[in-house]
Design a binder for these strands. Structure first.
Length: 792
DNA sequence: GCCGGCTGCTTACCA
DNA sequence: ACTGGTAAGCAGCCGGCC
DNA sequence: ACAATTAAGTGTTCAGAA
């Protein structure tokens, strides 16, 4: 007798039993259970439908030597663009038969490289963390009745962990060097080790094997749904696995006797823990750094914890760990270790809501989402909805096609050249979600693109036509995301900011934003299934058209248009209401979802000229002050890390003097004082450090540069420098070229006054002072021994 | 031999 | 590892000028 | 208990863990 049940859908995998394929669903109701659903893998063939039965005769040899044949064949109908197409649907006994059988077919095959579990999620239209209602008999689900969004998110049990290893030779060697500590933080926290410690949170066990086995027990006791680590997919878990094998220790971090396995998803390594979600924060932090959600130059636990939580790791050098262990520093090491586990836990709790929303929005189980790139998120969501709309999923490009795409970049946005100067009363208007709104409003999609002719269509500035007859896949999905987000945003305003519901909804809003902002990039991404040059070109072309139209109309309405970049216009206004009226007028003329918004009013702003003689304005560099005194600075040296603090601080003070006080005398005084201080030689070296990251291995550069020269000096002293190392250097007095003079901050003893005056402070401030009428001086400043001092 | 101007390589920023 | 547009540093080269 | 070891491809890396 079938029982009807409800539970949260957490994750899925699959098993083959007695030659039949079952999807294994991880469900969370009162308890967490694993249940099975009979489902056959399949793929589609664009071949002779009337002779479909013949495909059953295919015999394909698999890598393991076995012979695989299709088990069933039927006809399928799918949309391709606006047309319907008949295809052959070939069912296989198990997932690994698919590639083998496909390779025997002399016709184009589709949807054969979609991982089986994803396929199942598409076909059943499941969403992670939604509630499914199902009928079960024993361990088997007979029927999925419904999939619904829950009122409340499932309560996730979480645990973080971190290991310390004995490392006398630098990097620990799995075969020889033991795990000396495991720290964890969940409902309880503690450190497992096999030496005595006075710390009350330390549990001292007999040996390494006992530590590993006790860790397994703790996981079983805490029974977490999610296990956090930091780079645990590349270090902690493989290391523990290797040590457990060597010591014959039972390491059972999974549920239902599930083991662990490593996997690669593109460039990202994952380590799967059966029955639980292994959440490695490191790749997730990289992803959030990439999309600009967090601002970080390094992705070490220490740097990220500082940036996100405002907390640091304890100060123990990795190289010293084995010495602490050997020389009675167990307490100190335990303190260090537990802080790592706590920071990892805090980071995990911080980002879990967002990742869960990413998971249910993109329809990718949580573990997979933590390993996904933007392209994969968008692609998966599009495939999910393509399945829903019965559209054929395009194949992924291979080989030459990718290079062709890479070699044909698409023209991007328009940036208006600003007239340098200092201005008052600036209004900034911008298009809300410009590219997404263009895609939706003009129905831009590879499937709605009309080859030729076509009456009822949007015609892009490039000449491409998009039908108005049927809404395309990309616009439909994007429209849904954008719409959902605006509803959530208005709901958020009425909610209690400290409530759990607010945290969840806020995370969802974020997830929706991340996804919708990736769609345009995905259309122009070389490895995209839905790549379309005409689509991507049309998006930017319409973007340029709208921004230029707006500029033109603003000028016609009597505004001076100062500047514009991609989706924003900067106007000089007299009456705020005139700006609002203008904006409303534009909005009346805009199609569909497009909307111009008021970003803000600024009382004063500085636009500078580019370096070099002529007075051409610099793009992407400006500073403005709002009514309430807040300053907005873009592109200036002072927002860049590869300029010294002395130059950046001076530039900021000069800008503040001008924007806040309108005092050019004060600005000049600041510069003079700074130069005097530099000449006195009293400026601390830290304020002179220039920070640059080496993006390549130091041996792989073709050129000389100050940062590279400083890096070489570090290497000489035995300080490790590798790709990604951030170099802080000071330009000293010894040497002919700037590169020769560059010395790593920690080794610096003096500084080159002339360099800091002429190459740091003056370039940073003269661009601004020039707009105050001091431009004739800047011409002479290039000469020898001249400092600003001599001119005032 | 000195310089200005240019290019190439590089980093970091804006949208 | 989603897109393109932009400033600006330093090194190194070329050509013009004295 | 058994048997197999799990459907993606590019190029063959990045940077993090000790």
């Amino acid at each position: 007798m079938a029982k009807r049940r409800r539970a949260y859908f957490m994750d899925a995998s699959y098993v083959v039993k007695k030659g039949r394929t079952y999807v294994a669903l991880l469900l969370k109701g009162k308890k967490v259970v694993k249940l099975y659903y009979r489902y056959d893998p399949y793929f589609l063939v664009d071949g002779p439908v009337e002779r479909k039965e013949e495909f059953l005769d295919i015999q394909a040899q698999k890598k393991n030597g076995r012979i695989a044949s299709p088990i069933h064949v039927e006809e399928a109908e799918k949309y391709v663009g606006l047309e319907k197409k008949k295809l052959i649907k070939l069912y296989c006994r198990e997932p690994s038969d698919v590639p083998a059988i496909k390779s025997q077919i002399p016709f184009p095959c589709f949807e054969s490289s979609i991982p089986f579990v994803r396929r199942f999620i598409f076909d059943m239209q499941l969403s992670p963390f939604h509630v499914i209602t199902y009928e079960r008999e024993g361990r088997e689900i007979k029927k999925i009745i419904s999939v619904k969004e829950p009122k409340e998110a499932p309560q996730m049990e979480t645990l973080s962990f971190d290991i310390e290893t004995y490392n006398p030779m630098g990097a620990p060697r799995e075969k020889k060097d033991p795990v000396i500590m495991i720290s964890y933080r969940g409902r309880n926290k503690g450190v497992l080790t096999y030496k005595e410690s006075s710390r009350e949170f330390v549990e001292s066990l007999e040996n390494e094997k006992a530590v590993i086995e006790r860790f397994s027990e703790i996981i079983a006791e805490e029974n977490p749904d999610v296990i956090y680590g930091y780079n645990s997919a590349n270090f902690d878990l493989p290391y523990l696995d290797a040590r457990a094998k060597k010591l014959n220790a039972r390491l059972m971090p999974g549920r239902f006797k599930g083991g662990m396995r490593s996997l690669r998803k593109g460039m990202i390594n994952g380590y799967e823990i059966g029955g639980r979600v292994h959440f490695d924060l490191y790749p997730v932090m990289r992803f959030f750094g990439f999309i600009g959600l967090i601002k970080a130059q390094k992705f070490t636990l220490d740097a990220i914890a500082e940036e996100v939580l405002g907390k640091r790791k304890l100060d123990v050098k990795k190289e010293d760990i084995y010495q602490l262990w050997d020389q009675g520093g167990v307490d100190q090491l335990a303190d260090y270790s537990i802080v790592d586990a706590e920071l990892t836990y805090d980071l995990g709790e911080n980002f879990l809501p967002l990742e869960m929303e990413m998971s249910s929005t993109a329809k990718i189980p949580l573990f997979q989402v933590t390993l996904s790139t933007s392209g994969q998120l968008v692609e998966n969501l599009l495939m999910y909805h393509a399945a829903e709309r019965k559209e054929l999923i395009p194949r992924r490009p291979v080989g030459e096609a990718i290079y062709e795409r890479l070699n044909a970049p698409i023209q991007g946005a328009f940036v208006k050249l600003p007239e340098p100067g200092i201005y008052e009363n600036i209004a900034v208007l911008d298009f809300r979600g410009l590219y997404p709104s263009i895609i939706v409003s003009y129905n831009i999609d590879p499937g709605t693109l009309l080859e030729d002719g076509g009456e009822n269509a949007y015609v892009s500035p490039t000449g491409a036509k998009f039908t108005k007859e049927k809404q395309g896949l990309v616009p439909v999905v994007l429209d849904y995301l954008v719409d959902m987000r605006s509803k959530i945003k208005s709901r958020l305003k009425t909610m209690d900011r400290s409530s759990a519901a607010y945290v969840k909804m806020n995370a969802r809003s974020h997830a929706l934003k991340i996804l919708s902002n990736s769609f345009y990039g995905y259309l122009g991404y070389a490895r995209s299934r839905y790549y379309s040059r005409p689509c991507a070109e049309s998006v930017t072309a319409w973007g340029r058209k709208h921004i230029m139209d707006t500029i033109q109309k603003a000028e016609k309405a009597g505004f001076q248009v100062l500047y514009a970049d991609t989706d924003s216009v900067f106007l000089i206004y007299e009456e705020k209401n005139q700006v609002r009226d203008f904006m409303n007028g534009i909005n009346d003329s805009l199609p569909g979802k497009m909307e111009l918004e008021l970003e803000g009013f600024y009382t004063r702003g500085v636009f500078v000229s580019k370096k070099g003689g002529e007075a051409r304005g610099a793009k992407k560099k400006y500073a403005m002050i709002e009514d309430d005194g807040r300053i907005k600075i873009r592109g200036f040296e002072l927002v860049r890390r590869d300029w010294s603090d002395i130059a950046k601080d001076t530039q900021l003070k000069v800008l503040e003097a001008i924007l806040k006080e309108g005092s050019k005398q004060k600005a000049v005084r600041i510069v003079r004082e700074t130069i005097k201080e530099l000449e006195k030689g009293t400026v601390p070296l830290e304020k002179l450090a220039i920070i640059t990251q080496l993006k390549k291995d130091p041996t792989r550069y073709e050129i000389k540069s100050p940062e590279l020269s400083a890096a070489k000096k570090m290497l000489k002293r035995g300080i490790p420098v590798e790709r990604g190392t951030i170099i802080s250097y000071v330009v000293g007095r010894k040497g002919a070229s700037i590169s020769e003079k560059a010395v790593p901050l920690e080794l610096a003893e003096d500084y080159d006054v002339e360099y800091y005056v002429n190459n740091q402070v003056l370039p940073a401030v003269m661009k601004i002072l020039k707009e105050l009428g001091y431009d004739e001086y800047s011409m002479k400043v290039g000469g020898k021994q001249k400092s600003l001092d001599s001119f005032f």
